[in-house]
C-alpha cells in the first residue's frame, strides 16, 4: 500500500449545459491498488471517468499525475500519461479479430505496411502476462468470444501500452458468476503487478472481494474515500444511498462537503 497517489483530482466540476453533474470532486488513485468507484445510477461515475480519460473537458479543478499538474484535453493526452480506460459501452469491433482490436487506431507499421508479426507477438505476450488462457486464437473474431472473454480482451488492450492507470467501468455488469470471477482475478492481478486500477461496480461482493480502497460518489459529490479494511458493507451502502454514514461522508447532503 503506497502512500502517494499516482493520479489526483482536486475540485473537479463538470456540467452538461445547465446541469452540473460533478461538484468539487476529489479523487485519488494509488499504484498497486484497486480503487472501487461506487455510487447509485446517475451519481456521475462514468462522467468522472470520461473526464479522466479526456473525453469530456473539465470545467474546473486540477488534474495531477505523478506529482505534476497536467492538462488532459483528449484521449490521446490521457494515453500519453499512461491512463487507459475500458468504457462501460465497451468499444470492441465485432468484425475484427483480437489483435486488430487491441491495436485499433494505434497499429504498428513497418514502413507503409502493417507489422502483423510484432502486433501478434505483443498481443500474445500481453494475454500470457495476464495469465489469460481462455482464448483459443488471437486471430479469432471478437464476435465469437463470450462476454467474459471480450472483457478480457478489452482489459488486455488497456494494459498493452505499458499503462500505469487502468480504469474499468462496470466490467462485470453483463457477466455470469464464473466469468465475473475470472475478470475479478484479472483485475486483482493487474494491481498486484503494480498498476493502479479503478473498478466501477454496483456489486458489493465484487467491491469487497478485490478493492483496497472505496470511493463513493453521491449526486456528483465525492462522499468519502476510505480503505476497504475500515468499513462495513452497511456503511458503504449508506454512503451510496445517502452520502453519509456516521462520521463518514458529506456534512450535509444538500451542499457543502465535509
Amino acid at each position: 500500500m503506497t502512500a502517494t497517489p499516482i493520479l489526483r483530482l482536486r475540485g473537479i466540476d463538470k456540467s452538461f449545459g445547465p446541469v452540473q453533474v460533478l461538484h468539487d470532486v476529489s479523487f485519488d488513485v494509488h499504484p498497486g491498488e484497486v480503487t472501487a468507484l461506487v455510487g447509485d445510477n446517475g451519481a456521475g461515475k462514468s462522467t468522472l471517468v470520461k473526464c479522466i480519460g479526456g473525453i469530456h473537458p473539465i470545467d474546473g479543478g486540477e488534474y495531477w499525475f505523478e506529482d505534476e499538474e497536467v492538462q488532459v484535453h483528449s484521449p490521446r493526452d490521457a494515453a500519453a500519461l499512461g491512463v487507459e480506460i475500458v468504457y462501460q459501452d465497451l468499444a470492441l469491433c465485432d468484425n475484427l479479430d483480437i489483435v486488430q482490436n487491441m491495436f485499433l487506431g494505434r497499429e504498428k507499421r513497418r514502413g507503409l505496411v502493417l507489422d502483423d508479426a510484432t502486433m501478434e507477438e505483443m498481443a500474445a505476450k500481453t494475454l500470457e502476462g495476464l495469465s489469460v488462457r481462455t482464448v483459443k486464437s488471437i486471430r479469432q473474431q471478437v464476435s465469437s468470444l463470450s462476454g467474459g472473454q471480450r472483457q478480457t480482451v478489452a482489459i488486455a488492450k488497456a494494459v498493452l501500452w505499458n499503462s500505469k492507470v487502468v480504469i474499468l467501468d462496470e466490467p462485470t455488469a453483463a457477466l455470469g458468476v464464473a466469468q465475473t470471477a475470472q475478470v475479478l482475478e484479472l483485475v486483482r492481478r493487474l494491481a498486484d503487478n503494480g498498476l493502479a486500477v479503478v473498478l466501477i461496480s454496483h456489486n458489493m461482493n465484487d467491491v469487497f472481494a478485490v478493492s483496497d480502497r472505496i470511493a463513493a460518489l453521491y449526486l456528483g459529490r465525492m462522499a468519502a474515500q476510505i480503505r476497504t479494511s475500515d468499513v462495513t458493507h452497511a456503511q458503504v451502502v449508506e454512503l451510496i444511498t445517502s452520502g453519509r454514514s456516521g462520521d463518514l461522508g458529506l456534512a450535509t447532503t444538500n451542499g457543502a462537503t465535509a
Binding site: 458468476v177 470471477a181 458489493m204 461482493n205 469487497f208 475500515d230 462495513t232 458493507h233
Partner: peptide, 15 residues
C-alpha cells in the same frame, strides 16, 4: 466461489 459470493459479509465481519 463462496468468497466471491459473500465477500461483502466476510470483509465486514473482519473489519
Amino acid at each position: 466461489e463462496v468468497f466471491l459470493g459473500s465477500a461483502a459479509q466476510i470483509r465486514s465481519r473482519v473489519n
